[in-house]
Design a protein around this nucleic acid. Structure first.
Lengths: 106, 106
DNA sequence: ATTTTGAGAAACCAATTGGTTGCATATATA
DNA sequence: TATATATGCAACCAATTGGTTTCTCAAAAT
């Protein structure tokens, strides 16, 4: 069952977890405190995020800190790149149009 | 049942459809020709993409052309922004470190 | 006018998902 | 040493998902 980053970020709770631990690593219990759902539900989300290497574990005694592998997020950025090209070129086209209008007005 | 862009791009077929019609609008049949699955399956994907306003319909006779609303993709870009800040600041930190090493070496 | 074609809608189905509860295990703490 | 705490794992469950087949309707083509 191949995990995929796009599937991982599809769930809103998972996106919230990612944002939560983006700045500092946290334990499952600490993370679960921020949500309605149970620790086990959060743990399942953490498992999915770990499987697609979006987060990493760091064991400290009996606690496990989960930290975001922010580099992995670049994969989404790379996928977006193709569309960014399109919306930017449209913007340039609009820009060129405005320039033409401005100059023909004189 | 609130549709969400992150859920929409979670499915690989849907991502492929998005990429396919990014440059030119296409009919369901034309799109389905590019995939293994049936036209009905593709139509369901198109429905989901329409519901979250990632694509738009243009009726021409009995044909319906689906075109990408590329602006909508910016929503993902905006969400990514917070993480881009983090990975860029890390890069700057690394940059600063390399700079320090280089200068202390002398 | 009849037939073919493009497409949405509905009914159905197996697989997956997000969640729960209960249990097992290892590490702290009393 | 006995107890409390942190966590993972497995079994189970209802809801959702991605898919199929069948049906209907409207627009072209014959």
């Amino acid at each position: 069952m191949r995990r995929d980053i796009f599937q991982a970020i599809a769930d809103p709770t998972r996106r919230a977890i990612i944002a939560l631990i983006a700045l500092q690593a946290m334990t499952p219990n600490a993370i679960a405190d921020h949500f309605e759902s149970s620790r086990q539900a959060v743990s399942k989300h953490l498992k999915i995020l770990t499987e697609c290497e979006l987060i990493q574990q760091e064991q400290k005694g009996r606690e496990i800190f989960y930290k975001l592998e922010v580099e992995k997020m670049k994969e989404i950025d790379i996928w977006l790149e193709q569309f960014r090209k399109i919306w930017e070129s449209r913007f340039e086209q609009l820009d060129a149009l405005l320039f033409t209008l401005k100059n023909t007005k004189k």
